[in-house]
Design a protein around this nucleic acid. Structure first.
Length: 247
DNA sequence: CATATTTGACCGAA
DNA sequence: TTCGGTCAAATATG
């Protein structure tokens, strides 16, 4: 898997969490909340800010090193023409996509979805797209082939006629947590997680999905759940150390 | 009806 | 044999 991409995703998610916490803080400060809660939110916000700052500083130069190590020995021809990006909005409205498959990918929390251009058959359009959710709100999108369809490839259309595609994705309530398996370590009052194993898990709060609840119970969940689509707000970020650890 | 999505089957590559 | 990309029948949606 693309560890550097995942780490980038998590950092972006952290930044998002930081933004949300700032909003939460302003709400809490204005409202008639207890001093204890105000203090908690303030600490959380400061911790998030610190993490985002330090991560941005540390990870950026490291990406170079990782990139050089990641050069594949054998080049997959298909990957040469594949365009990949991490985005929160996997569906542009320039084109229409038709879903033709979904697969559980080993090592990934979320299923991968397969789309082809709606006009692939009648116009011989070869464009395809894979959407792999990396975090609750970020997707790794892989494009292969090119749009040969005439239908809406001209970019002169008015953007206001955005009809939400039937296959558009919504961000559901989710839980942000880290791999609790062999890559998670708790020691005294500190928790560690190997940074190359950072992952997010998600699920609807009211979901009856057994695997979600299973995963909640079988591991020491270290976050909390927000009723809205935001990261867990009672997570104690201050005890995390994202450095690789030996054990 | 048409047209889109879901989901297990299927199949090739490693 | 496992993994992941695709097919296609069943199902949903309007």
């Amino acid at each position: 898997m693309e560890n550097s991409l995942i780490i980038d995703s998590v950092i972006q998610e952290m930044e998002h969490a930081f933004d949300l916490t700032k909003k939460l803080q302003s709400l809490v400060e204005l409202g008639s909340c207890s001093d204890r809660l105000k203090e908690l939110v303030r600490v959380l916000k400061d911790d998030l800010q610190q993490i985002v700052r330090s991560r941005k500083k540390d990870v950026k130069p490291q990406k170079k090193r990782m990139a050089s190590l990641d050069v594949p020995i054998r080049v997959d021809r298909r990957s040469l023409s594949a365009r990949r990006e991490i985005t929160a909005t996997p569906f542009d409205h320039d084109h229409q996509w038709r879903k033709y498959g979904e697969k559980k990918i080993t090592g990934c929390i979320f299923s991968r979805s397969y789309y082809r251009c709606t006009y692939s058959e009648d116009q011989g359009c070869t464009a395809k797209m894979q959407v792999q959710r990396q975090t609750p709100s970020l997707f790794l999108v892989t494009h292969t082939g090119r749009h040969r369809c005439k239908t809406s490839s001209s970019r002169t259309d008015d953007d206001d006629t955005v009809k939400p595609s039937a296959s558009h994705i919504t961000v559901e309530p989710f839980l942000l947590r880290f791999d609790s398996g062999d890559h998670y370590k708790k020691e005294e009052n500190k928790s560690y997680v190997r940074k190359d194993m950072v992952q997010t898990w998600s699920g609807k709060l009211e979901s009856a999905d057994p695997t979600f609840h299973e995963s909640m119970e079988s591991s020491s969940a270290i976050g909390g759940i927000d009723s809205l689509s935001s990261v867990a707000l009672d997570m104690d970020f201050s005890v995390f150390d994202f450095d690789d650890i030996e054990y």
